[in-house]
Design a protein around this nucleic acid. Sequence first.
RNA 1: GCCCUUGUAGCUUAAUGGAUAAAGUACUGAUCUUCGGAAUCAGUGAUGGGGGUUCGAUUCCCUCCAGGGGCACCA
Length: 578
Amino acid sequence: MKEEIQKLILETLKTLNIEESNFSVEHPEDFKNGDYSTNVAMVCAKKIGKNPRELATSIKELIENNLPKEIEKIEVAGAGFINFYLSRDYFTNSIRDILENKNNWGKSSLLKGKKIMVEYTDPNPFKPFHIGHLMTNAIGESVSRVVEFSGAETIRANYQGDVGPHVAKAIYGIMKTGMPDENMTISEKAQYIGRCYSDGSNLYDTDDQAKKEIEIINKAIYGRTDEEINKVYDWGRSITLDAFEEIYKLLGTKFNHYFFESEMAIAGEKVVRENIGKVFDESDPTREQSEKGQTGAIIFHGENYDKKLHTRVFINSQGLPTYETKEIGLTMAKFEKENPDISIVVTATEQSDYMKVVQKAISLIHPDYEIRMKHIAHGMMKFASGKMSSRKGNIVTGESLLHDSMDIVLEKVKDRELTDEEKNNISRIVGVSALKYSILKSSLGSDIVYDFEKSISFEGDSGPYLQYTAVRANSIIIKAKSFNTEDKKEIPTENTELEKLLYQFPEVVDRAYASLEPHHIATYLTHLASAFNSFYGNTKILVDENKCADYHLKIVTAFYQTMKNGLWLLGIETPEKM
RNA sequence: GCCCUUGUAGCUUAAUGGAUAAAGUACUGAUCUUCGGAAUCAGUGAUGGGGGUUCGAUUCCCUCCAGGGGCACCA
């Protein structure tokens, strides 16, 4: 429709001898200004020395006669906008479209034939699944779904640090306090390992003896030289990874690829060493390093290519690869394994500058990768009140936050007439939704403030509000099965706000992809839910007096379908009841 | 010091250079014996300061102020 209007205007400009294509056709924010609006008159007015409103009026008169049948009327308004109003038939047809397309409503073929890899979550074995991982997961999953909905083959990847000092600290802690009770759940065992990590980490900073032992353990892990350590390592790695899987299951994520830091170092180091003198440089050792017999580090001078970049170390003076080098190994592995058209990485903003430097270095080695690597950075979740403890009094982790949210829902439904299984299912679906929505409703980049006192929102601008609205619509649909609409098939003459929003869904999905910002979908769905609730409050659908019951029911069904598809894009399930 | 990023109602957030800056929450007051009140309707209330570009700036540019992050051998 938008293209048709643009074409129409371009033709009209031609007859007026105006050369200009830099105008826009958009949906006005307020529906009283039409369904589409163009600023063409304001853009061109100065060029031809005319008043914008006068020009708008002449353009209007010229196109009025060959309007497509979907447009009912056009008007000149404001400073010189030309507003287009869609016809009744257009809305009736768009509702029919939605009902025909069902779960495919909103999908596009924009990325057909493309392969897109999204790396996100990236928790570290032996450490807790913390709040940052929850955020990255919610955003990454939603981005993956938007990409998938836009027609791309989507590959979900997770990169996990299974070697390094943090592992040695955890193992030191475990060996000191002993193995946990066999009967503990996986999650409890993982939490125990998290506490051991914390203990080991504290001792590393305060106790020289512990520090030495941890360094020995660290070497033993890399070389797999100590059988006892290997045993603890294999056990702990497997327990924490299993615990992560339980969380992914709750959150609704299924990864296609798991990359591990332990596997990336060798490939990365090879690439770095091959490019010394070309991309990387060897720095002069400091006097202290020389005295220890060490050479200089292998570094990359980012600022030589872009003054906004900086220098980073890829191989340290002890000859060990750093995280940067592993990132190169990881990127190579991604392109060699799957060769994606676009490789997206989701992390917190603190990695932004680091990522730019590493991606520049990779681009110098593989120029064809440069435009295919994208980094999405999000802010941190902060706490409004200083308290950083969960409901059970422990340190807040992503996992505890998730369970707290689910517990709140369980309390809300505890007196309902539902089976325990239903209650548990609802608490999971709604609890996850509350948390995910509070992450996904804001644009990326800025920090999210989470008010622990008020807890997560369940009303108004929230995930549960959207789900509740969908459930209400679903109740009507269920009730309608035993309601005869045979003699109630009139089509209303008025166009509802709900209909005006519904047909825009595919455009919202496109915008979310173009900007890689899932919050556009969240904002749209809240707007849509609010329009539905108004409609619901003003319209009694399944009553004998309503001669439009049949069509109203179609609107409700179309709304339900759109909400369901939209929530799916946010990684949120739509419950049957709640 | 340099680089990145963020400043919008009391609070949490929207707004592809466009029309009266949009919601939620809180507060005030209404609706409702309903197809599910986790709802609806009405009211109060905001673009950090100062310049500039533009017919038009929350949006782009400059500057100042304030927060957050990052700047060599951690990940």
